[in-house]
Amino acid sequence: MTTTYISRHPLEDRLPLEPGIRAVDHLEVPRGKAIATVMAMDGEEAAVAAGLAASGDVSVRFVAPGEWLAISQSDTPEVLHRNLSLLLAEAAYIFDQSDGRVVFRLSGPNVRRILAKGVGIDLHASAFEIGTSSNVLCGHISVNLARSGENEFELIVMRSFAESLFDDLRAMGREFDLSADFAAEG
């Protein structure tokens, strides 16, 4: 028997479905991102890192030695999984995480001050450059934090923590009148 599961975003009850009015500092929740965990096989860490770096459209987030998250905006989860499998066959294990993780995008001039309320690492551009990513503790939740621009950060969190992290981020951003909505692109 085949069962059809309905794909449902964990924040659907918490956010308006249409994009709202943006404040200066904004929390955006992109839907429909394809996310995959890539784990290098023993001894293949360097080869996998080089392969991922050359994968073009896919943005790569560092999780741990030999472990990354690969994110694609344009591909479906199936296509991302297939592309990565072709690219990294025999060198890495690839698992689809598209429904298992939730992406948050924080942007605005005060993002660093907002994040400083929950994250215990130095986020100055000289210490945490654009393009770097790492797992950090935000409040009591472990998230993958990446700097995608001078004043833009992306947080990837496990699905079951998404609502809790959302509440935390809103509380952290209340001082700066942080607005929140789903990203327009999907």
Binding site: A64, I121, S134, V136, L137, S142
Partner: peptide, 10 residues
């Protein structure tokens, strides 16, 4: 050695 300077809470 992998993540840099971190607070002990992690």
């Amino acid at each position: 050695p992998h993540c840099g300077v971190r607070p002990k809470e992690e």
